[in-house]
Design a binder for these strands. Sequence first.
DNA 1: ACGGTCATGTCGCAAAGTGACATCGGCACT
DNA 2: AGTGCCGATGTCACTTTGCGACATGACCGT
Lengths: 202, 202
Amino acid sequence: MARWQPDARGRLEAAAFELFRERGFEQTTVADIAARASLDKRTFYRLFGDKREALFSGSGRVEEVLVRAVTETDAGPFEAVVAAFRRVAEELFADRLELVRARQAIIESSPELQERELRKSGSLAAAVTAALRARGLDETTATLATESGATVFRVAFARWIAPDSDAPLSDLIAEVAAELRAITSAPNALTSAGPDEPSRRW
Amino acid sequence: MARWQPDARGRLEAAAFELFRERGFEQTTVADIAARASLDKRTFYRLFGDKREALFSGSGRVEEVLVRAVTETDAGPFEAVVAAFRRVAEELFADRLELVRARQAIIESSPELQERELRKSGSLAAAVTAALRARGLDETTATLATESGATVFRVAFARWIAPDSDAPLSDLIAEVAAELRAITSAPNALTSAGPDEPSRRW
DNA sequence: ACGGTCATGTCGCAAAGTGACATCGGCACT
DNA sequence: AGTGCCGATGTCACTTTGCGACATGACCGT
């Protein structure tokens, strides 16, 4: 028997991605995934904690880039986090709009996957906060900077994958960061702040 | 047979809470919960979508208070959200520190429950954002205000349930909100800009 | 060739959910 | 009271998840 399959993990990820697109997440069985990759269900569970994990293998790389970027700068906490997310946008997301859209569509179709994504984001945030603390910041400051930066990223990301969007994610992040500043620093603005001038490289 | 149980839902919630505390979430079976409430497993699934939901029945009330508070004020978006969370703190959390601590301990013991809590928070946030939009704010402003306010709440909440804490949650929220302002309002220039080769496979 | 180790397959099982159907209790209406 | 309907609950059977235990085949160093 073909014991020793090259890149079993990668093949399972690919099979899962295809099947989730074809039939949807809930209509896809782990046995289906394994079958398409010519592997056994049990093998799947040895490589992935559960069915959802097959979609989230990339989060490790995101964490790497994020932590490295935050560690290697000496900008203010919030600025550092925003810059780190822009790094991620440039290194990991640019050029992959369609792939990211497809993946996001799958996630949004299933509550289970949404939950998992939230958890992944949470652990990413924890790692960034830890990196900030390693720079000497106190817990509260580090957490607030991380969460604010993550919020900026989420909003910018949503705009990026919107069907009519074409601006680079990195630019969108910079714009949204500026908007956040406007909101939190002016304790009386009753109405919204219009789309400000996109701050370039600052 | 005893068809017709008074307050089946409440009894199942109580039974679940007890069992989760006694044996932990994963070691508790839905059949166990139902048995303690003298009901059938199938009945549990008619009242709750899944095992986790038994712990999250309170989120409905939180949403009510939040949305009402945000709707009935004309303060700036961020201020309105912070004030709304303070309302929640006063009306729903004050006087229940020990209960909340126990509940939080259960949640933190199980990744599954953490995911569910994240999702609940997310749908709460969506409701608040919608309420802000109903006041005429644009999507981005509403989202940023909601998320920032939620972050403030999370940080304050963590302090509140910390073992050595004794300040009222509502006060902690006000303090943390001030700290967030301090962080985001001082734009401190400095980019990341590192020559790095892009990694593959997000 | 030998033994060890690692990746994979096979088998079986507890628990999560769910659909279909049965049953009981109260309720309205005669 | 009698009848009949409806909603809440129980029962059964089933699919899927996820995992433990064990078997087996492939590769590796000696």
